[in-house]
């Protein structure tokens, strides 16, 4: 399987979640909102570019938009490979969590 970094994983999830609105700014906004951490724009661009190269996401340009100074948005969407990768991660995660009680973790018991 593809080993994705945590930020790549989050970005894939954010893209899926945002659907039609999945371009840089909302992606960055959602990451900030959920992780509570400051994400700079460039910390979003780099993983996006890697994901495009790995063929996990694709992009298309929107119509030009006045508040962007007449420039288009680049809207990202998951490819089938991207969807599969997320499913795999989920499956691996599920298996890894299998048999682990969140309650016990919180209380520090085995």
């Amino acid at each position: 399987m593809n080993h994705l970094t945590r930020s790549e994983e989050y970005i894939l999830l954010a893209i899926w979640k945002l659907q039609e609105e999945a371009y840089t700014l909302p992606i960055q906004g959602r990451l900030q909102e959920i992780t509570g951490r400051d994400w700079s724009l460039s910390s979003v661009y780099a993983p996006l570019e890697r994901l495009v190269k790995q063929n996990l996401i694709k992009s298309e340009l929107s119509e030009p938009i006045p508040e962007r100074g007449g420039r288009p948005k680049r809207i990202y969407s998951l490819t089938s490979g991207g969807r599969r990768a997320l499913l795999e991660i989920n499956a691996v995660g599920q298996s890894m969590w299998d048999g682990i009680s969140v309650n016990a973790l919180e209380r520090g018991l085995k």
Binding site: T24, R68, G69
Partner: peptide, 14 residues
């Protein structure tokens, strides 16, 4: 690099 430029402009605005 029109897209990032657009992103920056939009972000600036926000």
């Amino acid at each position: 690099s029109q897209t990032p430029a657009g992103d920056y402009e939009e972000y600036f605005s926000s």
